[in-house]
Design a protein around this nucleic acid. Structure first.
Length: 428
RNA sequence: GGAUCUUUGGCAGAGUUGGUCGAAUGCACCGGUCUUGAAAACCGGCGAGGGUUACACCUCCCAGAGUUCGAAUCUCUGAGGGUCCA
C-alpha cells in the first residue's frame, strides 16, 4: 500500500471554499488585480476535478480499509483468506491509479492557486501604477530653502558619509559603504527606531537573514518572485528581502492560543533584493540598493483586532518621521501598485527637497488571512481554530531615512543638521 | 566529519511480539455543579485538515520511499534535536 498523499497543503493558497461558493464575487475582485477570468475559470474546473478524483480515491480506500479489517477477523477465526486476498489485491491496483490521478490534479491546482494574489479590499482604488495612488494626508510642511537644495548623493559624498564607488568595488553596482558620521547615523537610526517601536508595544526580535523555501512561500514571495531573491548556491536557502519573512513565519504551522494575540513585533535586519526589473531606476544614490537596512513591524492579530493594530502601525511609522521632523504624507495604494500578498497598503512617502518630490519610505500592508493560510498560522478561539491575520510594515527603511535627513536638513554650505532625537544616540 | 539515541495532539508524555490506536495520562482550554464572586474540588467535553444538511467516509503520530491484506509501531533515505568521539 503506497503511503497516501498529505492534503494538509490544501489551504496553502486562496480560499477554495470561497471559490466554490462565490466564484463570481471572487473573480470580480481579483480581476481588479489583473487576474484573468479564464485563469479563475481554470482554477475552478481544476478544483472540481480534484474533488471528483478524491471521491473516487476515498471510496476505494474505504473498501480497502474494510477488507483489511475483515482480513484480521478471518485470520483470527482461522478461515481461508485466499479469496479475500485476491479481491484486495485487485482493489489495490485501482487505488494506485486513483491516487496518481488525484496527486497530479492536486499539484496542478496548487501550482495555479499559489500564483493568485490576495483579494484587494473594496477600499483599494483602481489604478495602474503609483500615479493612481490616493493621498490620505500630509504631516509637516516642507520648509522653504533660500538656495537650491542638493540631492542626497552629492551631500553624502561632500560630507564623506557614503562611498558609492567602493561599494561597487566590493560587490557590484547598487552596493554602497557608509563612513564616519554616515555609518554612525545609520546605527543611531536603527536604535532609535527599535526603541520607538518597543515603546509602542512591539517586542524586539532578532532573526536569521537566511530562510528556507517554506518561509518564503508562507509570506508569498515564492513561488512567484524567485527572480527577485538571492539564493544560496546548492542550498534551499535565500537571503531575506525583508524581515517580514522570518518574523511572520515564526509562528508558521502553529495554533496560537487566543490570549497570546495580538503579537506585535519589531526587528532590524539587512534586506537583500536583486531588484530585477528595476533596471535604470534610481541608479544613483542609495534609494534602491541590493542590500539595505530596515526596521520592520509585524503583527499577528485576530481578525477583529486587525484595523486597530494596522492604524497603530501606520501611526508608529509616521510618528517616527515626525519625531525626526521629516515632512511626509500617507498614501493609499491603488490596485496596480498593491503587492502580491496585500489586501490593502498604506505607503508613507517622505519629502525629498533635492528630488523635489515625495518618495516611499515605508509600506504598511494588511494581508488579512492570506499569509496565515499559506503559512498555516491559526489560533484557537474558544472551540474552533481560525486563521490569524498578519500585518507588516517598515518603520522605517534606514537608508532612505538617512537620505531624507540629508536632503531636508542640509545647509547652504553643504553641512547637515542632526535631528535632536538622534543626538543622545550619537553622544551629542 | 564518525558513533549512538531521539522526533507522537496547544504543551508535556504513554504507546515497538504490526490489526479494536487518531492514539493512555497530566497540564492547558471550553461547559456545568458548588461559591456573594474567584480559587480549589467534582462532573462533562476537548488533536488537526478534508468531506456530509447531519452522519458515513478519507487523510495526518518529522518528511519521503518501501515491506505487508493491514504500520505511530518493521526497513531504507533525508531533515531537525540530544549524547559521546574526533
Amino acid at each position: 500500500m503506497p503511503k497516501t498523499y498529505s492534503h494538509n497543503s490544501r489551504n496553502k493558497m486562496i480560499d477554495l471554499k470561497l471559490l466554490q461558493k462565490d466564484f463570481d464575487t471572487l473573480s470580480t475582485k481579483l480581476a481588479r488585480k489583473g487576474v484573468d477570468a479564464s485563469l479563475m475559470q481554470n482554477l475552478q474546473t481544476k478544483n472540481e476535478e480534484l474533488r471528483a478524483a478524491k471521491q473516487v480515491f476515498e471510496a476505494l480506500q474505504a473498501s480497502q480499509n474494510a477488507m483489511s479489517k475483515e482480513f484480521g477477523v478471518y485470520k483470527r477465526e482461522g478461515k481461508d483468506v485466499s479469496q479475500l486476498k485476491a479481491k484486495v489485491d485487485a482493489n489495490k491496483i485501482e487505488i494506485t491509479t486513483a491516487l496518481d490521478i488525484q496527486r497530479e490534479r492536486q499539484e496542478e491546482l496548487e501550482k495555479m492557486a499559489m500564483a493568485i494574489p490576495n483579494i484587494p479590499d473594496d477600499s483599494v482604488p483602481d489604478g495602474a501604477d503609483e500615479e493612481d495612488n490616493i493621498e490620505i494626508g500630509k504631516i509637516l510642511t516642507p520648509k522653504e530653502f533660500s538656495f537650491t537644495p542638493k540631492e542626497h548623493w552629492e551631500l553624502a559624498e561632500e560630507n564623506g558619509w557614503i562611498d558609492f564607488e567602493r561599494g561597487v568595488k566590493l560587490a557590484t553596482s547598487r552596493f554602497s559603504v557608509s563612513f564616519g558620521m554616515g555609518a554612525r547615523l545609520e546605527r543611531a537610526l536603527i536604535n532609535f527606531m527599535l526603541d520607538f517601536n518597543r515603546e509602542r508595544g512591539f517586542e524586539e526580535v532578532s532573526v536569521p537573514a537566511l530562510v528556507n523555501r517554506a518561509a518564503l512561500e508562507g509570506t508569498g514571495q515564492l513561488p512567484k518572485f524567485e527572480d527577485d531573491l538571492y539564493k544560496m548556491d546548492g542550498q534551499e536557502l535565500f537571503l531575506i528581502p525583508t524581515a517580514e519573512v522570518p518574523v511572520t513565519n515564526l509562528y508558521q504551522d502553529e495554533i496560537l492560543v487566543s490570549d497570546e494575540l495580538p503579537k506585535k513585533m519589531t526587528a532590524y535586519t539587512s534586506c537583500f533584493r536583486k531588484e530585477a526589473g528595476a533596471a535604470g531606476r534610481d541608479t544613483r544614490g542609495m534609494i534602491r540598493q541590493h542590500q539595505f537596512h530596515k526596521v520592520e513591524l509585524v503583527a499577528i492579530v485576530k481578525p477583529e483586532e486587525n484595523a486597530k493594530v494596522f492604524d497603530e502601525m501606520v501611526s508608529c511609522a509616521s510618528d517616527i518621521l515626525t519625531a525626526l521632523e521629516l515632512p511626509h504624507r500617507l498614501v493609499n495604494l491603488c490596485t496596480g501598485d498593491l503587492g502580491f500578498g496585500a489586501a490593502h497598503t498604506t505607503d508613507i512617502e517622505v519629502w525629498l527637497p533635492g528630488q523635489n518630490q515625495y518618495r516611499e519610505i515605508s509600506s504598511i500592508s494588511n494581508t488579512r488571512d492570506f499569509q496565515a493560510r499559506r503559512a498555516k498560522i491559526r489560533y484557537k478561539d474558544g472551540k474552533k481554530n481560525s486563521f490569524v491575520n498578519t500585518l507588516n510594515g517598515s518603520s522605517l527603511a534606514v537608508g532612505r531615512t538617512l537620505v531624507a535627513i540629508m536632503e531636508n536638513n542640509q545647509n547652504e554650505d553643504g553641512s547637515i543638521d542632526i535631528p535632536d532625537v538622534l543626538k543622545p544616540y550619537l553622544g551629542m
